[in-house]
Amino acid sequence: MQFGNLLTSIVDGLLIGAVYGLAAMGLTLIWGVMNVINLAHGPLIALGMFSIYLLFSNFGLNPYLALLIAAFLGLIFGILIYFIAIQRVLGASHLSTLLATYSVNMIIIGIGTAIFTTTFRNVDYSLGNITFGPLTVLGTRAVAALLTFLIAGSLYLFLYRTRLGKYVRAVANNRAAAELMGIPSTQILALSFGIGTMLAILAGGLISTMLPFTILSGGAYELKSFVIGVLGGLGNPLGSLVGGLVLGLLEGIVPVFMPNTWVPVIEFVIFILILIVRPTGLFGVKK
């Protein structure tokens, strides 16, 4: 393989990896704040894809403008899910929270399949190519990666620079103590679930501008989110970005040396090994 191709492959991997990271951020935020593994994450990502698709092909809305609307709807939808399906089982066994989120998964997939079937869709929108010397990248990918960093940056500012963000971190750290300090934990938990959902929707929306998809496509990204979450530390949303880049890099480089089908094998073996040896994640902090 030529150097130019390798470089393109690496850069492409990194650009997509950033978006993987965004997808994982929502999952790991929810895990970190309320210790819930959100098995509805994949379908939520798929809903993100379809929101952009619908707004773009039915109303001719610019995909990035559509993203803004979808994000807002995602926040509301996430808060609704929290109150309907999550709140009641929060203190219960892991099985309960896993199955509660899985039931949301089933509901979304069932309705989604009935409406959209499982034929592939794509958002037919192009920003052309960007070329730097030997390197050529798709405009939509570059913008997606750029927006990812923007969103990650905003999340960071929100968590570390705003009062609400501090509340979120306090509830994540120790809910009982946070409540003693007068933090309204229910609202904060609902908000966190809303933000987690919004991040999934955003990630799905960005992916829809790059790759074709069906209502079932979110599943693959959900699994990747697990891997990334463990790489970057479950409960550490910003570690996810790093984890996503690592995964993207892996997906860019591995196919150069061995058949593409080995990529998921390597990913999941890494996932298992990290969980066995260091369940807090490679770059993980506490929890």
Binding site: N35, I37, L223, F226, V230, T261, E267, F271, I272, L275
Partner: peptide, 27 residues
């Protein structure tokens, strides 16, 4: 190797094992 993990971590790693096996047999 994995039963020392508790709660959600154990559930997660079993998902990983299944996916790894699927991907491996695929190759």
């Amino acid at each position: 190797s994995i039963l020392h993990l508790r709660g959600g971590y154990f559930a997660l790693v079993t998902i990983g094992v299944n996916e790894a096996m699927r991907a491996f047999i695929n190759t």
